[in-house]
Simulated scan of single mutants.
Amino acid sequence: MLSIDKVFHASVVLKNIVRDTAIVPTEGITEDCQLFLKPENLQKTGSFKLRGSGYKISMLSDEEKQRGVIACSAGNHAQGVALAATKSGVNSIICLPDSAPISKIEATKRYGAQVCLVEGVYDDAYNRALELKEERGYTFVHPFDDEDVIAGQGTIGLEIVQEMNDVDAVIVPIGGGGLISGVAFAIKSMNPNIKVYGVQAAGAPSMFNSVHEGSIGCLESVSTIADGIAVKQPGEHTFSLVQKYVDDIALVTEDEIAAAILTLIEKQKMVAEGAGAVSVAAAMFNKFPIAGKRVVSLISGGNIDVTILSRVIERGLMKSGRSSSLVIELIDKPGQLQTVSRIIADCGGNVTSVQYERAGEIESINGCYLKLGMETRNYDHVRMIASALTDNGFKLIETK
């Protein structure tokens, strides 16, 4: 059974396995609260997953360790199990769909695991892992719905309270619920007055829906850049613990997640994956009543796919008003672009792209459309530029 003694035991066991991730203060991310970060993206393997798998493997009997462990994951859990098993001298096999990124396959191998590629998708890999478990007697390390795994994740909650005993609220990402279950249980056991809030991506609201409906449900599909929390169905243990110990759950959009990733890079020089940034997105976009409070956002991981990072940054720039565009209808005559550019420059904006188009239903036969991409400070700045153009007689068709 999960108990606070078990979580304390896990913290002792994990001393030689995990890295200390001290709480970091922030400036300029939120205006209404004092925001701090618990940077598990700086953990070994780049996420908190090492804690739960490390404790789970440490609790196996000598016979179970001799037989080895098996897991199924296309991401952080795979690497956590691989490293935890290697540190304990235990053989590990990770089943991955053959569509998994090469970088994740190679990272899992580097941590010492044997990789079993399975044709198909995640569910096929999961089923194969269960087959191998039965055939060869491996111990299956579940990514979230296991009390030892939950206790290991709960050590984060202990560390937050021990390091910052005046914290008012903690915001935690939710996928299957293992992380928030452990963190909320530990925090509420030590200080029930601390609020624990959970965050899911709007494109994968499995725990959010289940809690609001009062029973575990399964989503037909999930779609989010926060792939680390893209879980269709929460676990039985985690659902029960979240119901009992978590104060509220909110959803964040893809644009809000992208804006949080960008803000962490710019303001904190910190790289977070989508799943890790949702807790910051919730604080930035006022998802919880935290005004005037001392708040810790848990950054659960930093293993973002670099191939999509530029797209995420672009969305974050657009969401924050740092990247914007205008469509202007004007008379096609010399000097128009120069005048428009001067007005934008005088307002402190920077033109980054120009697109000219004559086609379309334009009022004047000599008319054209001018689409400009701009670097701007924020949405107030965009509005100021638009107002200046309008005051100078230009007709704006679109601003975004």
Rank of each mutant, 00 (worst) to 15 (best):
K6F: 15
A10W: 11
T26P: 02
P39F: 10
N41I: 01
G46I: 00
F48N: 03
S53N: 05
G54I: 10
I57R: 03
I57P: 06
M59V: 09
L60G: 02
E64A: 13
V69M: 09
A78M: 08
S88W: 10
S92Q: 12
C95L: 11
L96R: 00
P97C: 04
P97Q: 07
A107F: 02
A125F: 06
N127C: 10
E135W: 13
R136W: 14
Y138D: 09
V141D: 00
F144S: 05
G154S: 06
L158H: 01
P173H: 09
P173N: 06
A184D: 03
I187V: 10
I187N: 04
S189P: 06
Y197N: 05
A201P: 03
T224F: 11
T224S: 12
G228N: 03
V231H: 00
E236D: 13
Y245M: 02
T253H: 05
E254T: 10
E256M: 08
L262K: 04
K267G: 03
V278Q: 02
A281W: 00
A282F: 00
F285W: 07
I290A: 03
V295A: 00
S300E: 07
T307R: 14
T307K: 15
R322S: 05
S324T: 12
T339I: 15
A345Q: 13
N350E: 11
A359K: 10
N366K: 11
E398I: 11
